[in-house]
Write a protein that binds this DNA or RNA. Structure first.
Lengths: 295, 295
DNA sequence: CGCGAGATTGACTCGGGTCAATAGTAGTGG
DNA sequence: CCACTACTATTGACCCGAGTCAATCTCGCG
């Protein structure tokens, strides 16, 4: 992949560069440097009191919508922390199909997958204008030797990421399409809340296709599922704008009752009633006490 | 049968220890120790020349088939490295269903998911008698401060694990049942080769149910797929015993990528070309090509 | 204002999950 | 040694969830 037609990769932050080609120059609306303390707060790890020193400053870099932060195979040397904006990280398979791995947003760290092979294993693309903090790996290692807590924090963040991916694996391996979309909405909602935005009404920064790729579904299924949630009053949808109406149901949802669309036969209509939520089913192997939504 | 030439994990030297599943008791009858060098070799990371010192010794612990190494929620304090034997790590969802996350074997590190929350996020169970090396996290941290390479190695191993999980996510999100099983067999084969065992004939250490859980499939589908591979001459199956007959085909076996992402023509062309990638290698004596994967 | 990317919906298909019956295997104890 | 039990694996029948194909519809943007 390594598309050659994409001119910009990492912009030169120090210079007020003018864009080549038709690109507009970097906007410097945001701050350019962060100290260690800000960095820790952003990562949601215990702040180290002793390191208020201004000696360590971390450079910011801005990316515009659609720009690549790094590509697959590119030599690894720095980690990135999202200060503002939204991105996606993707894997590209042998046929050029994208597989979305994550949607980094404020406070998230990415680029970690490059440590092992010294080359980034994934590609990061800005879904909106972004302000990122550069964390040169070498520099970070040195820092870790001075401030032990930092080192530990790094382990912690990587461990957190590992756990997150475990959750993804679990979700992809076990949940229905509806449950995946529901969880996705819930986690987005929580994320927005953490960032100080509304958890009840927000705009998706990604396309249906990207959501589907992330959740292991097709864009059509994502779209249909959102529409179904809308019909059931769980959410409101209008293109990219999502309104959360029933967070609890979304949280516990496993399967939706069949739509009133097809009245094939009344064989199993017992599911009319709230087949949402509900917990307590013991084990899937045990024969079916219910195939009602609850599972 | 044919358990013959498959190296068994070290037999327990006449221990009468009876394991009741569910307990987290480690027995230490064959107390062995490894030094740092052995440990690095095991983890497949560059050996640090300067640390031949015998000062740092790491304890071994034996677990018998079925025993739990750690459980979910248990306070975290040590990492584990597999010296011999086979295990599984599982997540347990809110309904008690198991989700297999990995099958650690020789040279693998696990327990890392406990770092972040200070409690293990998964459960590790021995699938055979195992010999594990304990790596107390505190001790490791201290070591890292003395030997910088170690610290870097740790980042590397964690990064490797992260990349592995990315691969899992990608697989679960995009590949067909057949492709998943095929990949699983290939990676097992490679793993056995690395460990010095036969890559062509080996015994599965896990049940169909566990394989299915790992791959996001049901045990029936796993069984059926193995039978299908057998019929096509790709492998031989007899219960737990697997013989690899056509590694190349297994490697390239795939099925339509669900997301017709990217260029429409590219994917269209892909499905024509890429079906079963039988490279005219050795043996393939069997008649014409089957069209398994064909789209 | 038209163009193209994204989103929505419908109709059809089928991969793989579910249920169920059967058989091979291992461990236990008489 | 065999009987008894529990677990694991294999197969078949059935069918539903979600992928595929395709026809609009909407919206933002040059």
């Amino acid at each position: 992949m390594t598309s050659t037609h994409i001119p910009e990769t990492r912009p030169e932050p120090g210079s007020s560069n003018h864009s080549t080609s038709g690109e507009v120059a970097w906007q410097r609306q945001g701050k350019l440097w962060s100290n260690l303390k800000e960095l820790c707060e952003l990562l949601r790890i215990p702040v180290t009191p002793s390191v208020n020193e201004e000696e360590f400053l971390f450079q910011h870099v801005q990316f515009k919508t659609g720009q690549r932060v790094h590509t697959i195979g590119q030599p690894f040397d720095t980690l990135f922390i999202v200060h503002s904006g939204f991105l996606k990280t993707v894997l590209i398979d042998e046929f050029g199909n994208e597989q979305v791995l994550s949607f980094p947003m404020k406070g998230d760290l990415f680029g970690v997958d490059g440590i092992h092979t010294k080359r980034y294993a994934s590609e990061a693309v800005a879904l909106s204008n972004c302000d990122l903090i550069l964390l040169p790996f070498k520099k970070f290692i040195q820092l870790g030797r001075v401030h032990a807590e930092l080192e530990h924090a790094m382990y912690s963040v990587m461990s957190r990421e590992l756990v997150r991916e475990q959750g993804m694996v679990s979700m992809l391996g076990a949940l229905s399409a509806e449950a995946r979309v529901a969880r996705f909405l819930v986690s987005l909602s929580e994320r927005f809340a953490e960032m100080g935005y509304s958890s009840k009404l927000f705009n998706l920064r990604m396309t249906r296709h990207e959501i589907g790729s992330y959740l292991g579904l097709t864009l059509e299924t994502v779209s249909r599922t959102l529409s179904a949630f809308n019909e059931f009053g769980l959410i409101t949808v209008d293109q990219r704008s999502i309104g959360i109406k029933d967070l609890d149901s979304l949280r516990t949802l496993r399967r939706l009752p069949p739509s009133s669309a097809r009245s094939k036969q009344a064989s199993k209509k017992a599911r009319e009633a709230a087949a949402l939520g509900r917990s307590g089913s013991t084990d899937s192997s045990s024969s079916g006490d219910l195939q009602i939504a609850a599972l």
